[in-house]
Amino acid sequence: MTGTPIQAAGDEESEASRRRLAAAFAAGQESALRAAYDQYSGLVFRIALHSLGNRGDAEDVTQATFVSAWRGRDTYDPIRGSLAGWLVGIARRRTVDLLRAQARTQRELDAAGLEAGSVELADPAEHAVDAVVVADGLAELPPVQRRVLELAFFDDLSHPQIAAATGMPLGTVKSHVRRGMIRLRDRLEAAGVTLT
């Protein structure tokens, strides 16, 4: 827990600047679109890219997301959620739409006996995109928190086993797991994913 005050101060500052950007975006300030693009286009693009597996499609989703967001900024309420979460929500729906459209095209190409496209189809499109939202959220967690969650999720270690493997006290492991999972859940919910 050493260094927490500095970390907290940094978080507060960036949280304040995120809020200012979100408010400026909602208010239609001209510079906010570019600032939001600079800040969040990578996030939007990664989610689309890892879902679609194709840069061209992911760029198309990125374009559509920011165009939709700017045109629909009246529907964004900064009080109700982060700009990042709202943008991811739009990107998620765009990506799901595109996956479904590709699945349809693929089926029709197959039916017509023509060569199939190179697109790898995700069967439940929504599930696949949501998994990418989680994976991206996991990658953005503080390294220690991420490591603990990876051990829990992918290596199926119990909390005492994680404590033994990392040398962390059991209580610290538990708190990392808890905070990490809740951050991932918040991220999904901000993107409009229903989790029940």
Partner: peptide, 10 residues
């Protein structure tokens, strides 16, 4: 659900 999505993605 978060756990399942994380595992699914992996």
């Amino acid at each position: 659900a978060v756990r399942d999505l994380a595992r699914f993605g992996s």
